[in-house]
């Protein structure tokens, strides 16, 4: 058995969540790594959609940005940005929105705007929304991949950039949002899914070697653990080889 890092476990777990034929709107960074790994392993038919206007990209390495040339050159179709959002995302043609987060709260709301309570005088100014608010609203469901710590995994986000389940209990439906919102959160420690009734994120699996106590320590709210807690299967040598080959190709 080869050794692997927590980040590699996270990317592999996130990749496994995607299946062939799904249409996936991909954020740059961790989501793009996972989606490309899925396409290179068990889901070759996965359709990757990048907000820069590349539909069905098949890059041989991980793009550094959302609009690298390789995304356009390997796409089924290249379109303008208004078309991406209006014709493809807004009507509900995309199955999975795959997002990262600077801050994520216990109801799956995402903050990528500011850290601190005062928007006008933020402690830290983050990049902002990008495509995420409408990806989170209009994809059939949303997967979030994020490195977990008490700073990133908070009771309530400082700013709701992208709406998850609000404060829970069906708020999302009441607002008329058509997608199901975050249904899966993958971190470097484990996997979370929303409780079907309250929509609070519940720990449903830990990665190999991770204890519930470690997850609790890295969670900024009182962690709930599923009755039947699973352990994520260890990355296979094929998965690790494919992930490392993608990263190797990107840095060369």
């Amino acid at each position: 058995m080869s050794t692997y890092t927590a980040d590699e476990m996270m990317s592999v777990a996130a990749a496994r969540a995607l299946s062939g034929g799904q249409r996936c709107f991909v954020g740059i960074g961790l989501p793009s790594t996972a989606a490309n790994l899925a396409r290179r392993t068990h889901a070759p038919d996965l359709v990757l959609i990048y907000e820069s206007g590349a539909l069905g990209s098949k890059p041989d390495w991980l793009p550094a940005s959302i609009g690298d040339g390789i995304l356009a050159e390997t796409a089924d179709a290249v379109i303008g940005v208004p078309e991406v959002f209006n014709y493809w995302l807004q009507p509900g043609r995309i199955d999975v929105g795959f997002l990262g987060a600077a801050q994520l709260d216990k109801f799956g709301n995402i903050n990528t705007t500011v850290i601190g309570d005062d928007y006008a005088n933020p402690k830290v100014r983050l990049p902002g929304a990008g495509g995420a608010p409408e990806i989170a609203a209009n994809c059939h469901e949303v997967y979030v991949v994020v490195r977990q710590s008490k700073r990133s995994f908070v009771d309530q986000v400082d700013f709701v950039t992208s709406y998850g389940h609000g404060r829970g209990n069906g708020e999302r439906e009441r607002l008329g949002l058509r997608g199901a919102g975050p249904t899966l959160v993958i971190t470097d420690l484990g996997v979370f899914r929303p409780d079907p009734d309250t929509h609070e994120l519940v720990l449903t699996a830990v990665h190999p070697g991770v204890t519930v106590e470690q997850v609790r320590e890295a969670t900024g709210w009182e962690l709930r653990v599923a009755d039947e807690l699973a352990t994520t299967p260890t990355p296979t040598s094929d998965e690790l080889a494919a992930l490392r080959a993608l990263k190797e190709a990107s840095s060369s």
Binding site: Q90, E134, T161, Y163, L177
Partner: peptide
Amino acid sequence: VLRGYVGTDLPNV
């Protein structure tokens, strides 16, 4: 007109 921003804090700021 779009389907956007609903539920987020962006309209507040």
